[in-house]
Amino acid sequence: MIAITGARGVGKTTLMLQHQVLGLEKESRSLYVSLDHPYFFDHSLLSLAEQFYKEGGRFLFIDEVHKFPNWSRELKMIYDLFPTLKTVFSASSALEIFKGESDLSRRVMIYHLHGLSFREYLSYQLKMTFEAYTLQEIIQNHETIVRSLMSELEERVLRLFKEYLEWGYYPFALELNKKESQIRINQVINVILDTDMAYAEGYTAATAHKLKKLLAVLAETVPFQPNVSELARKLGIARDTIYQYLKLLERGLLISPLYAQGKGISLFQKPEKLFLENTNLAFALQNYPDLGNLRETFFFNQLRNAGKEVLSPKSGDFLIDGQLFEIGGKSKNKKQIAQEASAFVVADDILIGYQNKIPLWLFGFLY
């Protein structure tokens, strides 16, 4: 049994349908169902799986699993009762899929689907294939890597990078124009807060309204250094509730917290900074997002999506694998991190770097 999680809009449904049509043999006997279909108003998931299995079904793809009552119990029963039925289901990132009445942890392999990397965006837009690189490969060989890419990308890479920051993170942008993409991103935000979050324990319409207010406050100032007392005063809610709301926004993949080096992470641990989860959200929530914030948000997002632990250091912007990174424009220098042995300047608006100065866009080739 496989679970696919990820933010709304990143392509979980498309991925399952493509695999069903293109990844399985024609006689594989597969079925796709979405649990928000009216059929499930008076039918159980278990009864459908049983009927499908008896008729020879062997691959079951289940979408919007969190919209079905007792979904975890029924999935557990499907797993136990039909041993040759291979099941794949998608789940909202706002949902804790192992928290419930039935323990699925020993039965399910979880895969998280991220939004497009800059590398993937380029591949789709230019109809080309580009290699992904590790962080250490970029650090050690960035000049060589960029020269090899320039024969195909040339100077248009900077124009495409700006497009990506604005509307290229979600795959649906590949088929829409800029205005349509931003409308769709706003719809994604509303569906997460109004619908997906509604399946979290204790979530109400009042909670949704306050989360929207909180997100609007954060969007104006991200990367936001949280003053929980000030947020509580502005929104008229308790400090502890602010922490819980921030966790909900994080689970919905609308914000990403950056924690300090050497500090633990818990429900009531205040992060050093809060970022929007990706730069496209900034353009959907604000008319003119701050350029410095966009740069940091992009870097943080791509490194996290590549599986790296990113921390807030005492000097510099980010600490990853014991290495410091300072983010800025093309004139940025190492002044703030000059005393650090392993430190790098990540600069926007440059095609190619030199020594410890690396182009920002190249960190979009990590996955």
Rank of each mutant, 00 (worst) to 15 (best):
H114L: 11
V108F: 00
H114Q: 12
Q182V: 07
S102V: 06
H142Q: 06
Q140G: 09
V157F: 04
M150N: 09
I183N: 12
G168L: 01
Y133A: 02
E154H: 15
L153M: 07
L122V: 06
A173V: 07
F98M: 04
T195W: 12
F161K: 09
K162N: 14
I138C: 12
L113W: 14
L149T: 04
V191Y: 10
P171D: 02
E120V: 08
E143H: 08
H114Y: 10
Y121L: 02
N177D: 15
D196H: 04
S181I: 08
M128L: 12
N190R: 05
K178F: 01
Q136P: 01
I139L: 15
I183M: 11
E163Q: 14
F98I: 01
K162G: 15
I139Y: 07
S148V: 05
G100V: 05
L149W: 01
R159N: 14
S102T: 12
M150F: 10
T134W: 00
F130H: 03
S151A: 13
I145R: 07
E166S: 14
H142Y: 07
L135F: 12
L174V: 04
E155V: 12
G168Y: 04
N141S: 13
I139P: 03
Y164K: 03
E143F: 00
M150K: 12
W167K: 08
F172M: 11
S102I: 07
L122T: 09
L176F: 07
E101S: 15
M109A: 12
Y133L: 03
L135V: 09
G100N: 02
S181Y: 10
Q140L: 12
L153W: 07
E166W: 02
I110F: 11
E155I: 11
Y111G: 05
F161G: 01
K162A: 15
M197A: 11
I189D: 07
M109Y: 10
I192F: 00
K179C: 05
N186P: 08
E163S: 14
D194T: 15
E180C: 02
V108P: 06
H112I: 05
I183A: 11
N177E: 08
Q140W: 03
A132V: 11
R106T: 02
L149Q: 01
R119Y: 00
L149G: 06
E166T: 13
E180S: 10
Y124I: 01
R184F: 13
R159K: 14
S123W: 03
F98Q: 03
S102R: 09
A173H: 12
A132R: 09
K178Q: 09
L160V: 04
F130W: 08
S117Q: 00
E120N: 06
T195V: 06
S117W: 05
E137A: 10
I138Y: 13
D194P: 04
V108Y: 00
K178P: 03
Y111Q: 11
I138V: 15
R184T: 15
Y121P: 02
H112A: 06
V157L: 04
V146H: 06
K179P: 03
L113C: 08
V108L: 01
I110Y: 08
R107T: 00
